[in-house]
Design a protein around this nucleic acid. Structure first.
Length: 113
DNA sequence: CTAGTGACCCAAC
DNA sequence: GGTTGGGCCACTA
Protein backbone atom coordinates (compact mmCIF):
# COMPACT_ATOMS: atom_id res chain seq x y z
CA UNK A 1 0.00 0.00 0.00
CA UNK A 2 1.28 3.32 -1.03
CA UNK A 3 -1.42 5.04 0.91
CA UNK A 4 0.63 5.74 3.99
CA UNK A 5 1.09 9.42 3.10
CA UNK A 6 -2.66 9.69 2.82
CA UNK A 7 -3.24 8.09 6.17
CA UNK A 8 -0.53 10.21 7.76
CA UNK A 9 -2.13 13.41 6.52
CA UNK A 10 -5.52 12.26 7.68
CA UNK A 11 -4.11 11.65 11.12
CA UNK A 12 -3.02 15.28 11.13
CA UNK A 13 -6.59 16.47 10.83
CA UNK A 14 -7.41 18.16 14.13
CA UNK A 15 -10.46 17.16 16.06
CA UNK A 16 -13.59 18.97 15.09
CA UNK A 17 -12.29 19.64 11.59
CA UNK A 18 -12.99 17.91 8.30
CA UNK A 19 -11.41 17.82 4.88
CA UNK A 20 -12.42 16.52 1.49
CA UNK A 21 -11.07 13.85 -0.81
CA UNK A 22 -10.23 16.44 -3.39
CA UNK A 23 -8.30 18.61 -0.98
CA UNK A 24 -6.31 15.66 0.27
CA UNK A 25 -5.51 14.66 -3.28
CA UNK A 26 -4.32 18.16 -4.09
CA UNK A 27 -2.20 18.55 -0.99
CA UNK A 28 -0.59 15.17 -1.52
CA UNK A 29 -0.39 15.66 -5.23
CA UNK A 30 -1.83 12.23 -5.85
CA UNK A 31 -2.08 11.28 -9.43
CA UNK A 32 -5.21 9.34 -8.79
CA UNK A 33 -6.96 12.47 -7.64
CA UNK A 34 -9.93 12.28 -5.33
CA UNK A 35 -10.66 8.75 -6.50
CA UNK A 36 -7.32 7.50 -5.27
CA UNK A 37 -8.05 9.00 -1.88
CA UNK A 38 -11.42 7.32 -1.90
CA UNK A 39 -9.78 4.06 -2.74
CA UNK A 40 -7.27 4.55 0.02
CA UNK A 41 -10.10 5.16 2.43
CA UNK A 42 -11.95 2.09 1.28
CA UNK A 43 -8.82 0.13 2.02
CA UNK A 44 -8.35 2.05 5.23
CA UNK A 45 -6.76 -0.26 7.76
CA UNK A 46 -8.75 -0.27 10.96
CA UNK A 47 -7.04 -0.07 14.28
CA UNK A 48 -4.42 2.35 13.05
CA UNK A 49 -5.99 5.34 14.67
CA UNK A 50 -7.02 6.84 11.39
CA UNK A 51 -9.86 9.34 11.79
CA UNK A 52 -11.47 8.34 8.51
CA UNK A 53 -14.69 10.00 9.59
CA UNK A 54 -13.04 13.41 9.19
CA UNK A 55 -12.81 12.86 5.46
CA UNK A 56 -15.91 13.88 3.57
CA UNK A 57 -16.88 14.55 -0.01
CA UNK A 58 -16.78 17.90 -1.76
CA UNK A 59 -19.10 20.48 -0.29
CA UNK A 60 -19.16 18.67 3.02
CA UNK A 61 -21.31 15.82 1.78
CA UNK A 62 -21.15 12.39 3.31
CA UNK A 63 -20.50 9.85 0.61
CA UNK A 64 -19.80 6.89 2.78
CA UNK A 65 -22.40 4.15 2.39
CA UNK A 66 -24.14 2.51 5.27
CA UNK A 67 -23.60 1.49 7.86
CA UNK A 68 -20.46 3.58 8.12
CA UNK A 69 -22.28 6.71 7.11
CA UNK A 70 -24.32 6.81 10.27
CA UNK A 71 -21.26 6.03 12.31
CA UNK A 72 -19.34 8.82 10.67
CA UNK A 73 -22.09 11.31 11.34
CA UNK A 74 -22.22 10.24 14.94
CA UNK A 75 -18.47 10.52 15.38
CA UNK A 76 -18.34 13.92 13.76
CA UNK A 77 -21.14 15.26 15.92
CA UNK A 78 -19.39 13.92 18.98
CA UNK A 79 -16.38 15.98 17.91
CA UNK A 80 -18.47 19.09 17.66
CA UNK A 81 -19.05 19.15 13.93
CA UNK A 82 -22.50 20.42 13.16
CA UNK A 83 -24.39 19.16 10.16
CA UNK A 84 -27.34 20.63 8.39
CA UNK A 85 -29.37 18.03 6.59
CA UNK A 86 -26.40 15.85 5.82
CA UNK A 87 -24.22 18.79 4.90
CA UNK A 88 -21.23 20.08 6.81
CA UNK A 89 -20.48 23.78 6.83
CA UNK A 90 -17.03 23.65 5.28
CA UNK A 91 -16.63 27.35 5.78
CA UNK A 92 -16.67 26.72 9.50
CA UNK A 93 -15.33 23.19 9.91
CA UNK A 94 -13.18 22.78 6.85
CA UNK A 95 -9.54 22.08 7.59
CA UNK A 96 -7.63 25.12 6.39
CA UNK A 97 -10.88 26.59 5.29
CA UNK A 98 -11.61 28.67 2.28
CA UNK A 99 -9.11 27.60 -0.33
CA UNK A 100 -9.66 29.76 -3.35
CA UNK A 101 -11.95 27.67 -5.40
CA UNK A 102 -10.97 29.22 -8.67
CA UNK A 103 -10.94 26.49 -11.23
CA UNK A 104 -11.15 27.77 -14.75
CA UNK A 105 -12.11 24.36 -16.00
CA UNK A 106 -12.23 25.54 -19.58
CA UNK A 107 -15.36 23.53 -20.13
CA UNK A 108 -14.77 19.93 -20.93
CA UNK A 109 -17.53 20.02 -23.41
CA UNK A 110 -15.80 22.68 -25.45
CA UNK A 111 -12.60 20.73 -25.13
CA UNK A 112 -14.40 17.59 -26.16
CA UNK A 113 -15.47 19.05 -29.39
C1' DC B 1 -3.41 -4.77 -23.02
C1' DT B 2 -8.70 -4.09 -22.39
C1' DA B 3 -12.85 -3.72 -19.54
C1' DG B 4 -15.21 -3.01 -15.48
C1' DT B 5 -15.68 -0.82 -11.01
C1' DG B 6 -15.24 2.72 -7.45
C1' DA B 7 -16.05 5.75 0.38
C1' DC B 8 -14.81 11.28 -6.38
C1' DC B 9 -15.68 16.00 -8.75
C1' DC B 10 -17.76 19.29 -11.57
C1' DA B 11 -20.24 21.65 -15.36
C1' DA B 12 -24.27 21.60 -17.87
C1' DC B 13 -29.00 20.42 -18.59
C1' DG C 1 -31.75 20.92 -7.16
C1' DG C 2 -31.81 16.07 -9.10
C1' DT C 3 -30.04 13.91 -13.23
C1' DT C 4 -26.59 13.27 -17.05
C1' DG C 5 -22.32 13.01 -18.92
C1' DG C 6 -17.31 13.59 -19.14
C1' DG C 7 -12.88 13.22 -16.85
C1' DC C 8 -9.63 11.68 -13.65
C1' DC C 9 -6.92 7.36 -12.26
C1' DA C 10 -5.93 3.07 -8.96
C1' DC C 11 -7.01 -1.58 -8.81
C1' DT C 12 -8.71 -6.21 -10.27
C1' DA C 13 -10.11 -9.89 -13.39
Amino acid sequence: MSWEPVYRLIKKIPQGRVTTYGELAKKLRLRGGARAVGYAMAACPSGKGIPWHRVVGAGGRLLIPEPHGSLQRRLLESEGVRMDFGRIDMNAYGWKQRAKRKRARQSKLARRR
